[in-house]
């Protein structure tokens, strides 16, 4: 269990580094899928199999497929990655990376001085306990999540509707 945790943590960090530094959109999405699967393995190793399964189904399965579909739809290929390579110069990324490293130092010192002292031994928290909590005292939160999903659905169907661009309205180009 410990070995599974540390190996999948290493894979998650390396894949995430490749996500933020990669030039091609498709490669970045594939590395992000690897990172999410590694985080799901971390969940399995920690003893949260329900969360791990949800991570694979919802994150790696649904949300990432959405990203892949949008990349396919917009046909982001070679010229997009050439543009990325031109944008990602050292003078662009050094400042933000230093700021993020500073924030990481603050977070690490806070975590290490916190003296939580607990050790995760890997005992399972089953889906029964989570379901009993969600449909008992947390029912209102589930309803609010449903409202959030409904709002996202309405927003996506409204914002994602493509109108004609101005030059198509003046007669050039074909209407979509």
């Amino acid at each position: 269990m410990e070995i599974a945790f540390y190996v999948s943590a290493l894979i998650a960090v390396l894949a995430t580094i490749r996500v933020v530094t990669s030039f091609s959109p498709v490669h970045a999405v594939l590395y992000l899928i690897v990172s999410l699967l590694a985080v799901a393995m971390v969940f399995f190793a920690l003893g949260a199999p329900f969360a791990g399964a949800l991570e694979i189904i919802v994150y790696a399965g649904a949300i990432m497929v959405l990203f892949v579909f949008v990349i396919m739809m917009l046909q982001l290929g070679g010229e997009a990655s050439a543009q990325e390579r031109a944008w990602l110069q050292p003078r662009i990324w050094v400042g933000p990376a230093l700021l993020a490293a500073l924030l990481l130092l603050v977070l690490l010192s806070t975590i290490l001085r916190g003296e939580a002292g607990e050790v995760i031994s890997g005992e399972l928290i089953t889906a029964t306990a989570v379901g009993g909590l969600l449909f008992g005292p947390w029912l209102m939160a589930v309803e609010l999540a449903a409202f959030l999903l409904l709002a996202a659905l309405v927003t996506a169907s409204h914002v994602g509707r493509l109108e004609r661009t101005p030059d198509e309205e003046t007669g050039k180009g074909e209407p979509r």
Partner: peptide
Amino acid sequence: GVPVEHGLILAALLFTLGLAGLMF
């Protein structure tokens, strides 16, 4: 067993990587 600090350190690492990517 895994100390809880190591899990939180992993979360902090992933969060700062995402933040750096968001900024640059």
